[in-house]
């Protein structure tokens, strides 16, 4: 499918970003596909699939004034949309522990080796500034079944001291 773009906007969070950005797209005749928009620390980040028949330059021109007035960095890439093509996760994994450099790399490295394909990952830093905790939450596909993932998590628990749990995800279709 043509005319689809991935639009990335990042900047300091403030009220009204989503309404103004999506308002400009609607006024400009664009349509949205899948999006994620969230506050990360004090910043707001938007990644959204946008259909714009007028092309990339027109899309950038449409968004530029809003981006500048909201002090957001704007980036646009042409993409292959592939809507209506949702791979189903079969495992949900939560990992948490005292924050330190390398947790995400270590956990996702071990899981990738055990056949885990991440579809969705969110992580957060909680606790206090003096004693932060890191919380990592993922859904994905277990290409080699759940057992290799369970044993990878067991090894991580033993060797790194993080807490790690896996729940099977079995969509109930009714």
């Amino acid at each position: 499918m043509k005319d689809w773009f991935m639009v990335t906007l990042v900047g300091r969070d403030r009220p009204g970003i989503v309404a103004r950005v999506t308002g400009a797209l609607f006024e400009g005749g664009c349509m949205l596909g899948e999006t994620t928009m969230m506050r990360l620390g004090g910043n707001f980040s938007i990644m959204m699939m946008v259909r714009c028949g007028a092309g990339r330059r027109a899309l950038e021109t449409m968004l530029r004034p809003e981006a500048e007035s909201l002090d957001l960095r704007l980036h646009v890439d042409a993409i292959d949309a592939r809507l209506h093509d949702h791979p189903q996760p079969d495992a949900r994994i939560t990992v948490y522990g005292a924050d330190r450099p390398g947790i995400v790399a270590q956990v996702t490295g071990a899981l990738a080796e055990a056949g885990f394909n991440i579809l969705d990952l969110e992580s957060d830093v909680g606790g206090t500034p003096e004693a932060p905790i890191y919380v990592l939450h993922m859904e994905g596909q277990a290409k080699e079944g759940l057992e290799p993932l369970r044993s990878a998590l067991e090894t991580l628990r033993r060797e790194t001291g993080v807490e790690a749990s896996l729940s099977p995800v079995e969509a109930m279709i009714g």
């Binding site: 189903q88 996760p89 995800v169 079995e170 969509a171 109930m172 279709i173 009714g174």
Partner: peptide, 9 residues
């Protein structure tokens, strides 16, 4: 209570 994944025909 439990969280689980659902879909629908």
């Amino acid at each position: 209570v439990a969280v689980g994944r659902e879909g629908c025909l």
